[in-house]
Amino acid sequence: MNKDRFKNPWFWVGIGGVILTATGMEPSMFTSWDALSGAVLDVLKNPFLLGTAALAVLGVFVEPTTKGLTDGKGEEK
């Protein structure tokens, strides 16, 4: 796996967006710390949401131009 992606802040923005979308988070869940912690606990108690979030994150990591879960050799820097 290409370690450069972990250094790119936009990778982390993408991961955050994917997780928020896959778990069904909405802006109203971020109005207070109590609301946020309750929403996070609800997600952690829901195996379907955890599974879809894991699959969505896997989709961000997978290089679509190669076979399997590994990155291609690509252009070396």
Rank of each mutant, 00 (worst) to 15 (best):
D4F: 00
D4I: 06
R5P: 03
R5I: 15
F6V: 04
K7E: 12
K7R: 13
N8V: 02
P9M: 03
P9N: 09
P9G: 06
W10E: 15
W10C: 14
F11Y: 12
F11E: 10
F11L: 13
F11R: 13
F11C: 04
W12P: 09
W12Y: 08
W12C: 11
V13D: 07
V13P: 01
V13Y: 09
V13R: 10
G14I: 01
G14K: 00
G14T: 03
I15E: 01
I15G: 12
I15N: 13
I15K: 06
G16W: 06
G16V: 02
G17P: 08
G17I: 14
V18F: 02
V18R: 08
V18I: 12
I19K: 01
I19F: 09
L20R: 05
L20N: 15
L20Y: 07
T21E: 13
A22R: 12
A22S: 11
A22P: 14
A22E: 03
T23S: 12
G24K: 04
G24Q: 04
M25K: 10
M25C: 04
M25L: 05
E26V: 02
P27F: 03
S28R: 07
M29A: 12
T31R: 01
T31G: 15
S32F: 03
W33Q: 11
D34A: 12
D34R: 06
A35K: 00
A35E: 03
L36P: 01
S37T: 12
G38T: 07
A39S: 10
A39F: 02
A39T: 01
V40F: 04
V40Y: 04
V40S: 06
L41A: 14
D42F: 09
D42E: 14
D42R: 09
D42C: 08
V43F: 00
L44Y: 09
L44G: 13
K45R: 14
K45D: 12
K45E: 06
K45F: 07
N46S: 10
N46F: 01
N46V: 08
N46L: 09
N46A: 11
P47I: 05
P47N: 08
P47A: 05
F48R: 14
L49F: 05
L49Q: 09
L49V: 09
L49S: 13
L50Q: 15
L50C: 11
G51T: 08
T52M: 08
T52A: 00
A53Y: 00
A54Y: 10
L55I: 02
L55W: 06
L55Q: 12
L55K: 11
A56K: 12
A56M: 15
V57F: 09
L58K: 15
L58G: 14
V60A: 15
V60E: 05
V62D: 01
E63D: 10
P64Q: 07
T65R: 05
T65V: 10
T66Q: 13
T66L: 00
K67R: 08
G68T: 09
G68C: 08
G68D: 11
G68V: 03
G68M: 05
L69E: 02
T70V: 12
T70S: 07
T70N: 08
T70M: 06
D71N: 15
D71G: 04
D71K: 03
D71V: 00
G72F: 04
G72Q: 00
G72K: 04
G72W: 03
G72E: 08
K73N: 11
K73Y: 10
K73R: 07
K73F: 10
G74N: 07
E75K: 15
E76V: 10
E76T: 05
K77V: 15
